[in-house]
Design a protein around this nucleic acid. Structure first.
Lengths: 251, 251
DNA sequence: CCCGGCTGTTACAAACCGTCACATTTTTGC
DNA sequence: GCAAAAATGTGACGGTTTGTAACAGCCGGG
């Protein structure tokens, strides 16, 4: 079963199995023969409104996926990491812009052929379906974060997400943050100042320790999970066993 | 092609074709033979964490779909209307609670059989896929709303969504709002007071006019669209042709 | 018919976060 | 390397939204 706590996947951006090796009839194998294209930091893979001709697989690097309101406000709906798919759940045109955060390598697959392959293979279909489910679950988590979480909870949630993705099961994972503070802010629905201040506060509390500007160490993973305000008590770390009061909403 | 501006569809809740009549090989026909079950206002169809045994079709009434944080904060990720599907994009357990807003009638379909039908039919699959795409698009819209829109823009966006869903193409549609202010607040990431104040302001501006407590008339649809802060200029109403400054984000 | 509970509205003070400003660090271009 | 530009950190201040509270309106029950 797929892990549910993946990075928020935007529309059409799908996290695939990280643990399943590519076998002939897996989503992974589809892109195998395609040439690798490189995108420099800040360059767009496609723009919102472009005709959706291709599906992409992230081979290396990180992408940001966003939409922009008419007055310039930007909303990043997700970040894509190696192994993720981009441009799947679309019909005729992309609903968002995809841009390289750092130097990124992609494989491209023609959209119509992708659909055909999926349609043809009873093995690929459940994989794709599971990916879409994960994508929706991540979108839901993000809605919860944006609708009801405080600035501190948002930043903590974000760091926790990256820590779980990159840090494995370590107790004090070292995590890389390739995106800028502005990217984080536009992803979390905050300003760069608030992100900056909040991370400073987390540092002063000893929850995190800055390594370089784009990397840090999570010193108290359990504390971070508590600050993230999660429903589930993923409390493998013994840093604080707060009682979970099951919320029963009066109707 | 499906309309993109549908009500935000939560995980597994899919808006189907409203214009396509049920034909033997359509999603609509699957539920045809199932008995209709009635849910009283406030009763749950299922709870977050329940084993996902069934897929539902909304026949009549409105549902709210939500998640609750450990301290009681509630986030409504979407409302479901007649014709919508519930519980599709899930694997083993429901990720949210579904509750009847008003008296609701549903048809139930066993989850495994639903999957089989989809797998078997090459006609049903693209329909389901298109539904999932709409669902993701709606989730994205909601993320934009929650991340960057002001209280007024959120309320305006919500009213516009309902107006377009129910009011058809009328210039001054009468729209029903079966949900409470608390539901609206938990959907829009606001408090009931803010929702109330904002609607009062919209009334004073002449944009809307209250009909009853759970119904109102949209007097200036174009103005409402402007207040909603949409990217696209859906300016069929001549109520104000503000210049759209295309935002080019400096990288 | 009146009453009690629930929902919705309005006012006011408070909190959180955004805005503005500037110092500091890092990166970029030459 | 050096200077310019960009990104980041930090503080003071203000605005939007929230929280608290009181009141009004609707609805069902006695």
């Amino acid at each position: 079963m797929l892990s549910q706590a993946t990075m928020s996947q935007p529309h059409g951006a799908v996290r695939r199995f990280a643990t399943v090796p590519p076998c002939p009839a897996s989503l992974n194998s589809l892109f195998g023969g395609q040439p690798v294209e490189t995108f420099e930091p800040g360059t767009a893979v496609f723009w919102e409104g472009d005709e959706a001709r291709h599906v992409f697989e992230v081979v290396e690097g990180v992408l940001r996926v966003f939409r922009i309101l008419s007055d310039g406000r930007r909303v990043i709906t997700g970040f894509l990491y190696p192994g993720d798919l981009l441009g799947v759940s679309l019909k005729d045109q992309y609903l968002y812009t995809a841009e390289a955060v750092n130097r990124t390598k992609l494989r491209r697959y023609e959209h119509g052929r992708f659909q055909e392959e999926i349609n043809r293979s009873p093995e690929l279909r459940p994989q794709l379906f599971a990916c879409l489910c994960d994508e929706m679950a991540a979108a839901q988590d993000q809605m919860v974060l944006l609708a009801r979480k405080s600035a501190e909870e948002r930043v903590a949630s974000f760091l926790l997400l990256i820590a779980r993705r990159l840090g494995g099961d370590e107790r004090q994972p070292v995590i890389e943050i390739p995106m800028t503070r502005l990217d984080m802010a536009d992803y979390l629905g905050l300003t760069i100042e608030t992100v900056s201040r909040t991370m400073t506060r987390l540092t002063n509390c000893g929850v995190i320790a800055p390594s370089s500007r784009h990397a840090l160490v999570v010193r108290k993973l359990g504390k971070l999970a508590l600050l993230a305000g999660e429903t589930e008590a993923d409390d493998k770390d013994g840093a604080g066993g707060r009682a979970i009061q099951q919320a029963v909403w009066p109707n």
